[in-house]
Design a protein around this nucleic acid. Structure first.
Lengths: 213, 213
DNA sequence: GTCTATAAAGAGATAGAC
DNA sequence: GTCTATCTCTTTATAGAC
């Protein structure tokens, strides 16, 4: 029985190495630009091992997408859990984005590759959509809390404010990837902070304590 | 001489049809997923015509990227030119985005394909970066004008506000492509309007007539 | 300028040995 | 489970006819 577990474990490790190699190559050369042979080779195997563990490239892509989506969803849950104060929340956000800024091109390329794949593969779309909804939901909770802390009413549907904040991540990272000179490393966090401040101001102006939506 | 013009004209038309076919296929199947033969066939030719007009697929991609970039830069210039009132400006923006929303998937996929290609091709990056700078510059002008109209000071560097508004386009379109249920057709325009209103509020609160950065 | 034919390389996938 | 060998199809690119 312990031998069986070892075999399962070995299989799991091989699959993981193949998935990691695929992620690298997809970022570098695109999903279509990376061949099965290149993926297997970077993982330290040959094509035989690949086909022994995956039904084909499409199956691997689908699994990679699921893996990354699940991992990101977990990170969102963790991030939403911690952070008692506003300062803490922003410190965490800053750390998170500094890490991401370090290998922006790689990370963004992979996200966009998987995203394009999902947009073109109807059965995978709900998976991505669910992850995005989750992230926006957590953000909406945070926005509501922050505005509450200031005693301000929410100046618009919190879900819409969260959508704006969330969408800004992709948008600003794209701008930075194209033109690093014009977009600072901390643009995302700076922008979210500015938005929160301005929404607080807007809420104060629109009427204290009013609660729309 | 008129014969020469005719030949030039004919060549130009062929190249344009090839470029248009390539744009369609890149959006549908990705740059790497679309073969030269498929491109030529959709344009109504064979591979021979393709290689008679382009040095290869890479050359066509580079040219497509330049063409699309130039066209978008022109649109930005036109949009920046017209629009006397705020209402006019938003009406134009709304029309523009309604049109874009109609074939969102196609448009976004092509933009992201070209964007990925540019990120991976160092010599093409400045081209894209320039176009983005131009768009942000025009937006910055618009933001400044709108806030001025309200007699409000600009609550932050107008370039940064413009960056936020501009980045939101990509970000929100991505969210809508993944999850149309949760993101309205007019999300982009609605968001920009909300941002303008909240920045006005923030400026009023921070101190009337102050002009930072 | 565009077509047909073809060379040469690369891709995904399977079979059989170990 | 992984490797080597092999099949088949697709791809890029070139040459030569028209």
């Amino acid at each position: 029985m312990s031998e069986r577990l070892t075999r399962q474990e070995s299989r799991r490790r091989t699959r993981e190495r193949l998935l990691a190699a695929a992620a690298e190559l997809f970022a570098e050369r695109g999903v279509n630009g990376a061949s099965v042979e290149q993926i297997a080779e970077r993982a330290g195997f040959t094509r035989g091992a690949f086909y022994g563990n995956f039904d084909g490239k499409d199956a691997l892509v689908a699994e990679l997408l699921q893996e990354r989506t699940r991992r990101e969803a977990e990170e969102v849950r963790e991030a939403a859990g911690g952070a008692a104060s506003r300062a803490e929340a922003f410190a965490a956000l800053r750390a998170w984005h500094r890490e991401r800024a370090r290998n922006l091109d790689t990370w963004l390329a992979l996200r966009m590759e998987l995203l394009l794949h999902a947009v073109r593969t109807p059965e995978l779309r709900p998976l991505l959509a669910e992850r995005e909804r989750l992230a926006r939901g957590a953000l909406a909770e945070g926005v509501r809390r922050e505005l509450d802390r200031d005693g301000a009413a929410t100046p618009a549907d919190p879900a819409f404010l969260a959508l704006i904040a969330h969408a800004l991540e992709d948008g600003l990272l794209i701008q930075r990837a194209l033109d690093p000179e014009s977009v600072g490393e901390e643009a995302v966090v700076d922008a979210v902070e500015l938005l929160l401040r301005s929404w607080t101001a807007l809420a104060g102006e629109t009427g204290e304590g009013e609660a729309p939506g």
